[in-house]
Design a binder for these strands. Sequence first.
RNA 1: GUCUCGGUAGCUCAAUUGGAUAGAGUGUCGGCCUCCGGAGCCGAAGGUUGUGGGUUCGAAUCCCGCCCGGGACACCA
Length: 663
Amino acid sequence: MFFPRVFVGWRDFMNLLSEIKGRFLPALAGLSGDVAALLDMIRPAQDAKFGDFQANFAMPLAKQLGRSPRDVATEVIGRLQIADLCEVPEIAGPGFINLRVRTDVLAARLSQIAFDDRLGVATVAQPRNVVVDFSSPNVAKPMHVGHLRSTVIGDSICRTLRFAGHSVTSDNHIGDWGTQFGMIIYGYRHFRDESSWQASAVGELARLYKLVNQLSDYHASVALLPAMQQNLEDSRQKLKQLQDGPDDERKKKLLATMRKGFAAAESELQAAQEKVDRIRQSPALLAAAEAHPDIARRAREETAKLHAGDAENTALWNQFMPVCLAALQQIYTRLKIGFDLTLGESWFNPFLAGVVESLQQQGLATLSEGALCVFPEGSTAPFIVRKTDGAYTYATTDLATIRYRRDQLAAQEVLYVVDSRQSEHFQQLFATARLWGCGDMTLKHVSFGTVMGSDGRPYKTRAGDTVGLESLLDEAILRARRIVDENDDRREQPLLSAEERGRVAEIVGLGAVKYADLHHSRDSDYVFDYDKMLATTGDTATYMQYAYARVCGIFRRLQISRESLRGQAAAIELGTPEERRLALQLLMFGYAIESVLSDYRPHLLTQWLFETANAFSQFFDKCSVQNAESESLKRSRLVLCDLMARAIRTGLSLLGIEVAEVL
RNA sequence: GUCUCGGUAGCUCAAUUGGAUAGAGUGUCGGCCUCCGGAGCCGAAGGUUGUGGGUUCGAAUCCCGCCCGGGACACCA
């Protein structure tokens, strides 16, 4: 018999939900062909008033059998042997079966996992070999806010997969071979400031990149400006004509479309004009621009020379790369994020010709308008694997990478944590890979939305530049420091030295940035807002960190070390609703992780963390540890506190967020 | 034009993928420190889920039409 996914839970004896599903299996036998689907409809209750778990299968099953849902529910409950786990199941509403776990069972389960670092979460029965492709910045330019989501989400997914027992290879597929290298090579040759280069090679490279980019844009804009003005004028005319023309059904819609087109043309023109103005306002820049009229083409030529193996450009590339990588590493070190591999585009360069050859041999690639293309089913646009000029594209590199990951890394699954704007590319890539013979791998685009500013537009500085990641982190940590200072200064006896305050500020600031990102569901755009992410109230990383610090405060106050609890048995007493809720919440950790991994959604873990910290805060409010009515209750609560602290620490660690004993 | 993602409380976002009376945070108003950290806890108000139809026991979720917004659509990656 084939066992579907739910039965993985057999090993996972601490997982309440799996165990409950296991009890329903015999009770449902013979009622439906697809028992797994029915078991899948047993879930945590969506409201505590309905109990702890609810089974929703009676309605669809009744339909299948042509009976009434409550009747079916009654029959299933009649067959169900669950008295040792749950109280008597109740049927509610149209036919929901509500389950409440016996409190003594919760207590017993909690005792068993009390000192388990994994909180009783078993590793998966069938580990997969997963490559996670994330972050992937261009090395020649500084990392900016756009790289934040991929980096933070990707890291969290890696950590969670590893925790679950999968074999994970994180790979930073950096852009180290593209046109931007031609630009810095050109810049280095013509605009290098030797003293700046000596002082800070990265800084100088960033400046050169920006300069060459600006000058290229200038010439492109100057060339395009007349056409753009004409275009704007044309659409102004057309708009006017239409407005004056006869009313009919299509007019309104057409008008809206044209207004949109007009607005787009207008802002396009404005952007181009700004690029031109910026150069013209500076005599030095203007002189540079005029001295290098065909800078864009010549930068492209430098790239082409590099790709062709030109000795001088290769030497420059070799000189630049360590500098660029060190700059990236500095950010990753601050973020406390690491990679198993950093195999960039350049690394796959030697394989590209072979990839194209293989595609041709299999008859997958055809020439179209001079470019060699694959036309995967369901897509009209070509997937270009070799350009007219003979150069390969990132499509080619991505295919080479897939093959490498399958053949050399034995990957069963590859996750691409990349901006949703590239979803069409990945659709084509995956379709092509399947045709090409990589159909045995699971390829998944874990897409995410844009980081927006409070104005609802992509997050930029007031001057309109993208925000550098470095300065963003600085700002968050600075703000966190102010909060930490203020808080500690308020105490009669400050607890933190200046050095400790700095360390805490870093934990709080970084946590705020990461949590803010992760707690949104990844496909939606999210608004970046320092004030919200570092708010001292509400659903932020600090809330969890604060809860953690409060637990530590209890132990400090009572002068008991958390480790000292571990020696003896942990008898748990759950006499109050607050203790019970916290216990149940702690036992749901495994479920939260499963939910995250079912579709790579870290926000489901932030949700669990918030609920857990909230359950603790209620407990903290109502259930005094130091004034517990008995020694055994006090000990029980201490164990609960210790467990909760480790739950928060472990959960946050899967998001890449740290905790501090004192905030 | 084609494709794609979205529109949910004043604001920022959820809703375990079709389940019960759509939930959190924030903001507003009102309670709670002789007691372990008040960065906390409790309560109230706040909704025609863009809109009109359809599918069924049941829809924010699936299908169709329309209205708004973001994004992608041939040689940048």
